[in-house]
C-alpha cells in the first residue's frame, strides 16, 4: 500500500460572495483532514469563509492539445459582448 498521503486540490470562497477559487494543494490522509489542513494552510490571513477539497486524482482536465479546437471558435463571436453594439448616448444607460 502506498504510504504517502494523497494530494488534494483546495478551493476557497472569500468574503465577497465570489465563486470558490482554486488556491493550491496539500497532502492529507482523507477528506476531513484535508479540510482541516486547508483551514490551517490556506486561510492564515482571513482569505476565506468556505473551503472545498477534491482529491487531485479526481480532477479531469481538458486536453491541452485540443486547446485550439476548444477555445478558438469563441474568439470571433464578438456579438456576444455588449461593446459590439453602438447605442446612442441619448438613450441613456443600458
Amino acid at each position: 500500500m502506498k504510504k504517502e498521503w494523497p494530494l488534494w486540490e483546495v478551493f476557497i470562497r472569500g468574503q465577497h460572495g465570489l465563486n470558490h477559487r482554486h488556491v493550491g494543494s496539500l497532502h492529507a490522509p482523507d477528506a476531513e483532514m484535508a479540510i482541516k489542513n486547508a483551514r490551517d494552510v490556506y486561510t492564515r490571513r482571513k482569505e476565506g469563509i468556505s473551503i472545498w477539497v477534491i482529491p487531485s486524482a479526481q480532477i479531469t482536465a481538458s486536453d491541452p492539445g485540443a486547446k485550439d479546437a476548444l477555445f478558438e471558435p469563441s474568439v470571433d463571436k464578438i456579438y456576444r459582448h455588449p461593446s459590439f453594439y453602438d447605442i446612442p448616448d441619448e438613450v441613456g444607460k443600458m
Binding site: 498521503w5 496539500l26 497532502h27 482541516k36 489542513n37 490551517d40 492564515r44
Partner: peptide
C-alpha cells in the same frame, strides 16, 4: 512529522 501539521501546530 509533516508540513501540514507544522503549520497547524504553529496556528
Amino acid at each position: 512529522p509533516v508540513l501540514e501539521e507544522d503549520i497547524a501546530l504553529a496556528n
